[in-house]
């Protein structure tokens, strides 16, 4: 029996390690078969060189230099407000893109990114790992089989620790786009659009800055109540309400009220509790890594010349919800979508 000819490996690079998720993606690129992690470009040369060394790949001193290697795809992990130029550069070079969430910080940037990739005929995928969470996928299957009947209401949470200790720019309004609302709303806004196969038509939000008030200038507490076109309503708690000694970074969970019953799903409950004489209690996760499946999907979409399961448009619509939340919080009243 003759072996199938091995396809040549996909060549993928990472543009910027500003976002800490780049470390996970780099790890996946190294671990997944059929992928050649061609290197790192970063406008912070020290940071880029550091991670290039960690992963044993070349460092490029400009984004153009990496793109000149004619990779099949790049993963963009710059600061949220700096996604646009890198995505546009990659599109201009004819290179497929997976962009870290939130897609951008303004509607204008988001639209420009969608247009650039469409015009260039390249994939724009948004890095929404929750689309690849095994528990969340289980519920998606249940919903698609009408196992819950019509979903009427959802109570969802994506709370976390205040992320300044990971990267300073996470709490910089200009670079991040905002605080906890911008950081956390997009994951659940996307999961809800995916689950309900419907669009958000109204957003109400209230925010505050009581937790970590002296450390950051952005909001740290946020509650949203979304309404979908068919009337389903869903709340999102996006607060940075996990104290620094919480046993893990945070979590994401939903409670769905359907006509046939109620289901609760927690994307991050698969943990071992660890106690010790010397350390604080901690959780040791044993979940299936959604990042692995997400990077694999980016590679598969490139190889199969198709759209990925989660697109730039999905990233745009999720960002729109977060932007609407700020408008609502300022008004004290709900705001209609789409935003003008």
């Amino acid at each position: 029996m003759q072996d199938q000819p091995q396809p040549s490996p996909l060549r993928i690079g990472i543009l910027s390690f500003a976002h800490l998720h780049a470390e996970s993606y780099a790890h996946q690129l190294k671990a997944l078969p059929g992928i050649d992690f061609i290197g790192v470009a970063d406008d912070d040369a020290a940071r880029g060189q550091h991670f290039a060394r960690v992963y044993g790949v070349p460092f490029f001193d400009s984004y153009d230099a990496l793109l000149a290697q004619r990779p099949d795809g790049v993963i963009v992990c710059s600061e949220n407000a700096r996604h646009r130029p890198l995505v546009e550069q990659a599109a201009a070079a004819g290179v497929h893109v997976m962009c870290e969430k939130p897609l951008a910080t303004t509607l204008e940037d988001g639209r420009a990114m969608l247009r650039a990739c469409e015009d260039a005929g390249v994939i724009l995928m948004t890095a929404f790992p929750m689309r690849f969470s095994a528990p969340l996928l289980e519920i998606k299957t249940l919903l698609d089989q009408d196992g819950l009947g019509r979903v009427l209401a959802v109570n969802s949470v994506n709370q976390g620790q205040m992320p300044k200790r990971y990267r300073d720019w996470f709490v910089d309004r200009e670079l991040a786009g905002g605080g906890s609302v911008f950081d956390h709303t997009v994951h659940l806004a996307d999961v809800l659009r995916w689950y309900l196969q419907d669009e958000v038509v109204e957003v109400y939000a209230q925010t505050n800055r009581i937790m970590h008030r002296d450390e950051v200038e952005v909001e740290t507490g946020g509650l949203l109540l979304l309404t979908f076109a068919n009337g389903t309503f869903a709340s999102i708690d996006c607060s940075w309400s996990r104290p620094m000694n919480y046993p893990t970074w945070g979590g994401l969970a939903l409670q769905l009220i359907g006509q046939k019953g109620v289901v609760h799903v927690d994307a991050f409950s698969q943990n071992i509790e660890a106690y010790s004489n010397t350390d604080l209690p901690a959780w040791i996760p044993w979940l299936s890594d959604p990042d692995r499946a997400m990077v694999q999907e980016f590679a598969s979409a490139i190889r199969e010349h198709r759209q990925p399961r989660v697109t730039g448009y999905d990233g745009f619509k999720a960002m729109e919800v977060a932007l609407a939340a700020y408008r609502s919080a300022a008004l004290g009243q709900p705001v209609s979508l789409p935003l003008g």
Partner: peptide, 27 residues
């Protein structure tokens, strides 16, 4: 439509705190 009344509410307190309240007869 629903197997029971169900509601989500967001309260804003005078001191700036915010509260999310869920009540349900839908279980």
């Amino acid at each position: 439509v629903s197997p029971g009344d169900h509601a989500l509410a967001i309260l804003t307190h005078a001191n700036g705190a915010i509260s999310h309240i869920e009540g349900s007869w839908a279980y």
